[in-house]
Structures are given as C-alpha cells and as structure tokens.
Computed example of a mutant assay.
Amino acid sequence: ALHYAARRFFQPVSVCAIPSEDGKSVRFSMVNDTPDDVEIDMNIFALALDGVRIPLKSASGTCGPDAAALLTEIDLHQLPAGALLSWNFIASNGMMGEGHHVRETYKALDLRPSVLTHQVSTLDNGDVEVEIVAEGLALFVMLEADVAGRYSDNLFDLAAGERRRIVFSPIDKAQTGKPAFKVFDLYTSQSQA
C-alpha cells in the first residue's frame, strides 16, 4: 500500500491539503517540481458517508517551475455533519490526482458497507483487467491477487457508483487461468467477518 501512496505524494505535480491549526479550514497548495509552468484545475467536494459527492468549490491556478503556491482555501463549516472533504485535480501536463481529508479520525467515522464488486478479464498481452465498482463510500480500496504481479494502481477511494479499472501484470504470464482477486477497503478491514 505504501508504494502506491508514495507514488502519489512524490508525483512531480500535486495538490496538498493543509489543515489550519484551529481545524476550521483547509488550504490547498499547488506543488510543481517540473521545469515548466503548469495550470491546475481542481474540484472540491463534500463526500457523505453514503458515498454521495456534493460539489463545494472549483479553483484554477498557475504554479511556476520548482515552486509551491496557494491555490484555494475552504471553510470546513461548509461540510455536512459526518462528511469528509474530497478533491481531484488535473494539471496542464496531464498529471492528475485526488485525495480526501477527515476532520477527526478514521476510527470515529460511522462507515457503512461499500458493497465492492469486481469483474476480471484477460487482455491480449496476458495482463488482467480488474474493474471495481462501489455502491457506497469505499476508502483505501486495495486489491490482492493469489499470484505475484504488479498493479497499474492500488490504494484509492471510490464514491457511490464510481468504478475504476486496474491492470494487473502477473509475473508469470505463462500461467493458465485468471488470477483470483480479493478487494478490501477501510470498512471491510475494520469489520468482523
């Protein structure tokens, strides 16, 4: 999991959430570690515990090379009770990202079952595509295969109705049959089976 999280937070262009000391607001800082200016378009949402995204604010800005700059700020009083702050962004160089901020602790969230389902299909090159769908809020979704290999992505969030396609590259592509996958999220990791 840390590998996928580190890939995101070390990405050359990103947006970082910085909570105020009093916990009443969050500033969003653009970070650009490339040698060129980048324009960043960002959307901020309230993410309810049932997985519904409620648009709060959009922001755009330009960040110079090898720099960081304030993009926008949001007052956390705008969030409905129990909701998380969620965002996504895309930069002019094609880099994109997403994140969320929890006001208190994950343990204090009254999470509901996310009802994650997945379908698996084999690609012509021997890789496997896994499509994951969430009926509710799914935080820190993670796939696990019964064979060794590499994922195009892992450890991500899904809102209600969202889907994500992940490509899994088995180390041994000569192996016959599809790998079996398990899909976890924060709710299933905290629940007793």
Rank of each mutant, 00 (worst) to 15 (best):
residue 1 A to G: 07
residue 2 L to I: 04
residue 4 Y to C: 14
residue 4 Y to S: 15
residue 7 R to H: 03
residue 8 R to D: 07
residue 9 F to V: 03
residue 9 F to Y: 02
residue 10 F to N: 00
residue 11 Q to F: 00
residue 12 P to D: 01
residue 19 P to R: 11
residue 19 P to N: 11
residue 19 P to Y: 12
residue 21 E to I: 06
residue 23 G to Q: 09
residue 24 K to Q: 05
residue 24 K to S: 04
residue 32 N to S: 05
residue 33 D to P: 04
residue 33 D to C: 12
residue 34 T to H: 10
residue 36 D to E: 08
residue 37 D to P: 05
residue 41 D to R: 14
residue 44 I to G: 00
residue 45 F to Q: 09
residue 47 L to D: 02
residue 47 L to V: 07
residue 48 A to H: 06
residue 48 A to P: 03
residue 51 G to A: 14
residue 55 P to G: 12
residue 56 L to N: 11
residue 57 K to P: 05
residue 59 A to P: 02
residue 60 S to W: 11
residue 62 T to S: 03
residue 62 T to K: 12
residue 62 T to Q: 08
residue 62 T to A: 03
residue 63 C to E: 00
residue 63 C to Q: 00
residue 63 C to T: 07
residue 65 P to W: 05
residue 66 D to M: 14
residue 68 A to S: 13
residue 70 L to E: 07
residue 70 L to N: 09
residue 70 L to S: 07
residue 72 T to D: 03
residue 74 I to H: 00
residue 78 Q to S: 10
residue 78 Q to G: 06
residue 80 P to G: 15
residue 80 P to C: 13
residue 81 A to N: 11
residue 81 A to S: 14
residue 82 G to N: 07
residue 83 A to Y: 09
residue 84 L to Q: 15
residue 87 W to S: 02
residue 87 W to C: 01
residue 90 I to R: 06
residue 90 I to A: 15
residue 91 A to G: 12
residue 91 A to I: 03
residue 91 A to R: 01
residue 91 A to S: 13
residue 92 S to E: 10
residue 93 N to W: 11
residue 96 M to F: 01
residue 96 M to H: 04
residue 97 G to H: 07
residue 99 G to Y: 03
residue 100 H to I: 04
residue 105 T to W: 10
residue 108 A to D: 12
residue 110 D to R: 06
residue 112 R to G: 15
residue 116 L to A: 00
residue 117 T to F: 07
residue 120 V to S: 14
residue 120 V to F: 10
residue 122 T to L: 10
residue 122 T to C: 09
residue 123 L to Y: 05
residue 125 N to P: 13
residue 127 D to L: 10
residue 127 D to V: 13
residue 128 V to N: 01
residue 130 V to M: 01
residue 131 E to I: 14
residue 133 V to H: 02
residue 137 L to K: 00
residue 138 A to P: 01
residue 139 L to A: 03
residue 140 F to D: 07
residue 142 M to Q: 06
residue 143 L to F: 02
residue 143 L to D: 00
residue 143 L to Q: 03
residue 144 E to I: 05
residue 144 E to H: 08
residue 145 A to K: 05
residue 146 D to H: 03
residue 146 D to T: 06
residue 147 V to P: 03
residue 147 V to M: 11
residue 150 R to K: 13
residue 151 Y to L: 14
residue 152 S to G: 12
residue 153 D to Y: 04
residue 158 L to T: 08
residue 158 L to W: 00
residue 158 L to R: 01
residue 159 A to M: 08
residue 160 A to M: 10
residue 161 G to N: 05
residue 162 E to S: 08
residue 163 R to D: 04
residue 164 R to E: 02
residue 166 I to L: 12
residue 167 V to W: 00
residue 167 V to H: 00
residue 167 V to F: 00
residue 168 F to N: 01
residue 168 F to E: 01
residue 168 F to K: 02
residue 169 S to T: 09
residue 169 S to I: 08
residue 169 S to M: 11
residue 171 I to N: 11
residue 171 I to K: 09
residue 171 I to L: 11
residue 173 K to S: 15
residue 173 K to G: 15
residue 175 Q to R: 13
residue 176 T to Q: 02
residue 176 T to G: 02
residue 178 K to A: 12
residue 179 P to S: 07
residue 179 P to M: 04
residue 179 P to A: 05
residue 186 L to P: 01
residue 187 Y to S: 06
residue 187 Y to F: 15
residue 188 T to N: 09
residue 188 T to A: 08
residue 189 S to N: 14
residue 189 S to F: 15
residue 191 S to E: 09
residue 193 A to H: 15
